[in-house]
Design a protein around this nucleic acid. Sequence first.
DNA 1: GCAAATTAATGATTTATTCAAG
DNA 2: CTTGAATAAATCATTAATTTGC
Lengths: 217, 217
Amino acid sequence: MGNMKMHQLACGFWEQEPLLSLGCKRLRPLAPKLHSNSTYTTVSSFDLKSFIRPDSGPRKLGNGPSDENNRHSPPVETHPGGTRWNPTQEQIGVLEMLYRGGMRTPNAQQIEQITEQLGKYGKIEGKNVFYWFQNHKARERQKQKRSSLGLTHCPRSSAPITPITLDTRVETMEREEDSPCKRKCRSWSFEEEDSRSSSKEDENRTLELFPLHPESR
Amino acid sequence: MGNMKMHQLACGFWEQEPLLSLGCKRLRPLAPKLHSNSTYTTVSSFDLKSFIRPDSGPRKLGNGPSDENNRHSPPVETHPGGTRWNPTQEQIGVLEMLYRGGMRTPNAQQIEQITEQLGKYGKIEGKNVFYWFQNHKARERQKQKRSSLGLTHCPRSSAPITPITLDTRVETMEREEDSPCKRKCRSWSFEEEDSRSSSKEDENRTLELFPLHPESR
DNA sequence: GCAAATTAATGATTTATTCAAG
DNA sequence: CTTGAATAAATCATTAATTTGC
C-alpha cells in the first residue's frame, strides 16, 4: 500500500547558452575521475537532440553584465485549469498549527501525510505543503526582521505592527555555529508524466498536472 | 503501465533532537520529528508508522552478488552505503554535453529521460541530474565571475583560454515539438518509502527515507 | 609503497530573492 | 497587497585526489 504519491508536472524552460566559452572543460585541478573503465565512451546512444531546446529561453534574473536579458516578454498564455493552489481555511489552519507546533521543514513523509490529511479539505499537493512551509518560514522571518528594524530606530510615530506574537522558541537555537553534522534529507522523485493515459490527447494537460506557464521573468 | 517513477530516499543523521521532542513519539532511531503537538486535531492521524527501514545497517554492500556497484570496480566499497551519487565518467560526459548544448534547467520529463539514459552507465536518480545542473550552472557562473574579476586586465602573455570555439550548434537541432511553455516548473512528488524499485534490485541500500526534523542548523 | 592527514571538488540542502496570480 | 511558485545563491557535508610521514 502506501506508495501514494502526489505529483505535479510542469514545464520548464531552458536558458540559452550564455556565451561563456569554457572551451576545454577538463581543467580539473584535481585528478580527473576515471573510475569506471570507460568501456562506454560512446554516449552516442544518447540522443540529446531530444533534450536540447533550441528555442531560446528567457534569461532569468539579469545577473551579470553579459546577460542580455530582457526576459520580460510574456506571450501570456494562461493555462486553463491548472493554476495555483488556493488553500482553504481549514488547510491554512492546520498548517499554521503545525508551524506553531514547531514544524518548519517537513520531510517527505511528513509532507505526504500532511497532504493527505489536507486533501480532505480541498485539492492540494505535496509541493503546496512544501512551499507553504518555505514561504511561511521565510516571511515570518522577514516580518520579524522588518519589525525589529523598524522599531529599533524610529520608535516614534507608530506601531501598527504587533511586535511579536510569534513564538520564537524554535528558531532561536538553530544557529549553533558549531553544530556537528545534522543535515536533513528529503526524498525526491520525479515522475513520468504518464502520457499514455490517453493516447495522444495529452499534450495539453489541463489540470494542475501541467501548469504551463509562459515564459516570463 | 504508465506512471513510471523513480524515487529515492536519502539518509541523514538525526543527531540530537532539537528541543521539542514532543512526547512519546517514538524512539525509533530515525524518528521523524513530527511535532504533533498537543493539539492534534485533524492531523493527529498522522501515524508515523513509517516504514523506516530498520535495517539501516550499512551492510557492506554486497547483497547482490553481481550487479550493483556499477562503477568502480575497485574493491573500494564505495558505494552503497547510501551515500551520495558519484557520477561515472560517462555520465559526466553526457551531462556536460547537454550543458554545452544549452541545457540549464531541465524539466521533469527531461530529467527523467536523462536519468534513464544515464542509468545505463551507473546508478543515478533524477535528483542527481537536477542537482548536477543546478550546481554546474552555479559554479560555471561563479567561475566566470571570478575569472572576469581576476583577470580583467592582464592582457599580455596569455592565451590559455580559448575565446570562442563555441559551437552554438544548438540551432542545428531545432526541435520544436515541445510544449509551448517556457517557464519553469518541475514535477514534484513525494512518495512513500518503497525503495526497492529503483533501478536494480540493489535491495538493501542504506539509503532510506530519513526523517528529519524541522530546523536543525 | 601505503595509510593517515590535507585539500580540492562537488553532491545535496537550505535560505534569500524574484516573479506573478488572484 | 498577499502569497504561491520557482530559481539562484549560500552553505553544508562527503568523497576523491594529493600530500606527507613513515
